[in-house]
Design a protein around this nucleic acid. Structure first.
Length: 258
DNA sequence: ATGGCCGGGAACCCCGGA
């Protein structure tokens, strides 16, 4: 079973990229963030015509998440039941016996902004809900754009990012509370190249100079981590015309317990 | 060459992203 996450930065612009990537990279479950589409504008027909099931929840201009799947999608939950939030950032579903959570964690903008307070509060409520999901579903995968670089090695130039969001001790501590639930960063289960990132700024030739962050993560419960045989960042779509600033991250799971 | 962004929505600039 292949699980992937990709912040597409507007599905309206990136639908051709998504379809091309799925054609070239057979994937069982793709979690998408930043669709930026209200549900009435979601490209349901195009995705279904390509042979996929899909669940989605969106809003105008900002946020919006979707789960694209080869297998039927069951028990869909939109948003965190423990946290009132008009922003559409969370979608959960059960697929092939695996509980999938697709999350678009708030950006935070800057440490002194109210958006940063929102990010920390959102993450605290996210933890409380994921704790329950983990208890209910031994096979749990939480995929998404976390907008947190877990460690300094996930940052192109850690000195440059001191005092910024995405790397603050509070954000990393919030990620740590998810690890404390037993959820493991699939990418770090394996040897990986240095300077591996999943996002690069559009500005200043960020991708060509590999000035990036690794902020798109796949967290796996112990049962799934034990079954995980690979996790890679696919940089190819970042080289295509009119790319998203993020690129897909893919985890491969071997046979799962019944 | 160390800097040259992108998408959406409402206008022809501003906001948000990271």
């Amino acid at each position: 079973m292949k699980l992937a996450t990709w912040n597409v930065n507007s599905l309206n612009v990136r639908l051709p990229h998504v379809m091309k990537w799925l054609e070239e990279n057979p994937t069982d479950v793709l979690c998408i963030q930043e669709t930026k589409l209200t549900d009435d504008k979601f490209p349901l027909a195009a995705i279904e015509a390509a042979g996929y099931h899909v669940a989605y929840t969106g809003q105008k201009t900002y946020n919006g998440v979707a789960i694209v799947s080869r297998l039927p999608i069951a028990d869909v939950v939109k948003n965190n039941p423990k946290y009132e939030d008009p922003q559409q950032r969370i979608l959960a579903a059960t697929i092939g016996g695996v509980r999938i959570v697709c999350a678009y964690v708030p950006n935070g903008q800057s440490i002194d902004s109210d958006k940063y307070e929102y990010k920390l509060g959102w993450l605290a409520a996210f933890h409380d809900w994921i704790k329950e999901e983990a208890a209910l579903h031994p096979q749990l995968a939480v995929l998404g754009d976390y907008n947190i670089a877990p460690e300094d090695r996930d940052v192109h130039d850690p000195a440059e990012w001191i005092g910024c969001t995405h790397v603050s001790p509070q954000e990393r501590a919030a990620l740590g509370t998810l690890h404390a639930l037993g959820l493991q960063d699939a990418y770090r289960l394996f040897e990986q190249p240095e300077k591996s990132f999943s996002w690069w700024d559009y500005r200043m030739m960020g991708f060509r100079r590999n000035r990036g962050l690794r902020i798109d993560l796949i967290l796996l419960s112990p049962v799934l981590a034990a079954a995980c045989s690979a996790c890679v960042i696919d940089r190819e779509p970042r080289k295509w015309e009119q790319p998203s600033d993020h690129t897909p991250v893919v985890a491969t799971l071997g046979p799962l317990p019944a």
